[in-house]
Nucleic acid binder design. Structure first.
Length: 665
DNA sequence: TTCTCTAAAATTTTT
DNA sequence: TTTTAGAGAA
């Protein structure tokens, strides 16, 4: 087999086959991954080895060779950004194809599937997707309903428990570990939480995958359809898949078995979220005829940076043996600096950035400052601002997580899904409608007691008596005492209006209506007058409306916003320094990288100390950080650093020592 | 009962 | 430093 492929490759190289000229730019390893189209194939793709290229060219080759219609090729990634990039790149190479390959994240793809079939597993088709924030609220409610201590059953702990079980495909009914009162309580919270989700006709992020697998298991004809349809499947960053994602993909590829997984066990940095490195390390065990390709040439970093990376990662015990060789020889040694405190650290970085830009020919956009934890960005920002350097925080606060965005969308979410109590509460309270905690609870109780949705209760006039709302014969409303209650009445009429137009009106029109008629606009404008910072909230709403205009209907837009797709959100192509966590920076590259806060307790993080597996994950994270750099790498740390509890002294990170600077030049 | 103002509380990494 | 909790005003 291997020989056959090499022969084939030589054929291309000799120019015998000029049918696929676009493959000329690929090296032998990459070609081998592209040309072996049939059956399962595992591609180990080291950092900077051109893995995205392989995926794109593989799709292109499949299409040009006529092996599959474009839309019957599925590419699965983890981030919307990666999926979007692949979509763009393939679009450029396929100018006038009737369809395009489906590039999607696990979550978006599952959401699309569930939108079509969720009714088969007991959901209403208008189900909503809860973000982390909202699911946290439900957990909090569950904990307090069960009279448990919030200090013991913290949202983050409960979340981790539930997420772990869902990612291992263990239902709340099947959670049998009740060995201790603590575990029993966690299980009870899990059950209560799931009941709440059902009540809201809602799914959390983990449910999207969980329920897709459930759907496939319970309705084999649905699975069969998708198995038939997707002839070729490729999965990016396979080292980050968890148990259920791996299961999902293998089910989907179960018929054609043309499954290409690409990944790098050294870049597995989501273990804390249930990712299993074994999924990639043991992939071959699942398929006896699995092929394997190693992409071992690094085109991104120079020799010096790559040596530093190798020196660190080779200390890890659990990893597939592999070499990665730099294409770019030489390079300046990694620079390590230790400062007195974080101010001098950030001051140095800012001045150094300006020097690099003024005298070394770099642009601000070529430079990134990476850190282990978000909290470190503050100090860096201060340093950059003081030195007049523009920056952008990559992956910081998500657009759709912003308060004003969630507020405006909550009206629509409630209108579309009348079971969504969270959105009802948010929308009715984000503008002064006169409904506070008590009124909202009262309305919910009335709806619960009559076993109907809040909006139905309103329509049936059951909310009469609350703030004087009364039902007219026509089904519309009048108030007993107009002065007090007109606002709540207006609120419900606005919801009614959205419900009526949701099917036909365009997404941006609906959002505009909500913004203007809910009173939110005047509220924001009022605030903007008092506080200049509030001005960008208005800008964000504008951006929201603009983004919505790219979607055919409101449901699709709501789904995209739930997945935090930033499609249509204008990202300015400006010349700014990038700030990011190392996690967020995965998949990116920069000419110059500063890794800051290289201190014990920060990197590796205090919570990982003493746990060898956790330390190994931190080390992989360090490897990911180092390999973002193309030309220059700086590592900085401070002797003392301000934390929430005063100044803290930290030693230099062990990772700096591991680089072994003597052998690094 | 709701709204607004002030004080404290919180930060690992995320689809 | 941004978000939540509590207290007082309307």
């Amino acid at each position: 087999m291997e020989n056959l492929i090499l022969q084939q490759i030589e054929k291309y190289k000799a120019g015998i086959n000029r049918k696929y000229p676009y493959l000329n730019g690929l090296n032998n390893e990459q070609l081998s991954a592209v040309l072996q189209t049939e059956g399962p194939i595992l591609v180990f793709a080291g950092a900077g080895s051109g893995k995205t290229r392989v995926i794109i060219y593989r799709a292109l080759y499949l299409i040009k060779k006529g092996l599959a219609e474009p839309n019957r090729i599925l590419g699965v990634t983890f981030t919307n950004k990666a999926a979007g990039e692949m979509r763009e790149r393939i679009k450029k190479t396929l100018d006038n194809q009737s369809s395009l390959p489906e590039f999607s994240t696990f979550h978006s793809f599952c959401l699309k599937v569930l939108r079509l079939h969720a009714h088969l597993i007991g959901y209403k088709e208008s189900f909503i997707v809860l973000d982390e924030d909202d699911s946290g609220k439900l957990i909090k409610a569950a904990v307090s309903e069960l009279n448990l201590d919030e200090k013991v059953y913290t949202i983050s702990k409960v979340k981790a428990f539930i997420s772990k079980h869902k990612s291992e495909y263990i239902n709340s009914e099947e959670t049998t570990d009740e060995s201790s009162p603590l575990k029993k309580n966690f299980t009870n919270i899990y059950r209560n939480y799931n009941e709440k989700l059902k009540e809201l006709n809602a799914m959390d992020f983990d449910d999207l995958i969980f329920n897709s697998v459930l759907l496939f298991e319970e309705k084999p004809f649905v699975l069969s359809f998708y198995q038939d349809f997707y002839k070729y499947i490729m999965v990016d960053e396979f080292q980050d898949t968890n148990y259920i994602q791996d299961k999902f993909i293998k089910m989907l590829a179960g018929k054609h078995k043309n499954l290409c997984v690409v990944g790098d066990d050294d870049q597995s940095i989501y273990g804390f979220r249930g990712a299993l490195v074994d999924n990639i390390l043991k992939f071959k065990n699942s398929f006896k005829d699995c092929k394997e390709v190693h992409l071992g040439k690094n085109y991104r970093s120079n020799e010096s940076i790559l040596n530093a990376a190798s020196n660190v990662i080779r200390i890890n015990k659990k990893r597939a043996a592999k070499d990665i060789a730099p294409v770019k020889k030489g390079g300046k040694p990694v620079k390590v600096y230790r400062f007195e405190n974080e101010e001098s650290e950030s001051g140095y970085i800012a001045r150094e950035i300006n020097l690099l830009v003024r005298h070394a020919g770099y642009s601000y956009k070529d430079i990134a400052v990476l850190y282990r934890i978000n909290a470190l960005s503050r100090g860096i920002e201060a340093g950059l601002i003081n030195n007049g350097i523009d920056y952008q925080i990559y992956g910081g606060l998500k657009f759709y997580q912003r308060k004003e965005i969630k507020d405006v969308l909550s009206f629509i979410r409630f209108a579309v899904n009348p079971q969504d109590f969270l959105s009802f509460k948010r929308s009715v309270q984000c503008v002064p409608t006169g409904a506070g905690e008590t009124t909202v609870e009262k309305i919910k109780r009335i709806a619960d007691e009559n076993n109907i949705h809040i909006f139905t209760a309103f329509q049936k006039g059951l909310l009469a008596g609350i703030k004087g709302l009364k039902l007219k014969e026509s089904g519309l409303f009048e108030t007993e005492r107009m002065a007090d209650k007109s606002k709540l009445l207006d609120y419900f009429e606005l919801i009614l209006k959205i419900k009526e137009t949701a099917g036909a009106a365009k997404a941006d029109e609906i959002i505009k209506t909500v913004f203007e008629e809910s009173g939110y606009e005047s509220l924001l404008k009022e605030k903007a007058e008092k506080d200049v910072l509030q001005n960008n909230r208005l800008d964000n709403i504008e951006a929201l409306i603009k983004a919505a205009s790219n979607y055919p209907n409101i449901q699709e837009f709501l789904d995209a916003s739930a997945m935090d797709t930033e499609i249509g959100i204008d990202k300015e192509e400006t010349n700014k320094v990038t700030l990011a966590t190392i996690h967020a920076a995965k998949g990116l590259e920069f000419s110059v990288v500063f890794m800051v806060g290289m201190e014990e307790n920060i990197f590796p993080h205090a919570k990982s100390l003493g746990d060898e597996l956790a330390i190994e994950e931190e080390r992989r994270l360090c490897y990911v950080g180092i390999t973002r750099a193309k030309d220059l790498l700086y590592m900085t740390c401070a002797e003392t650093r301000k934390t929430d509890k005063g100044n803290k002294e930290n030693n230099m990170s062990r990772f700096i020592k591991e680089i072994d600077l003597r052998n690094n030049n």
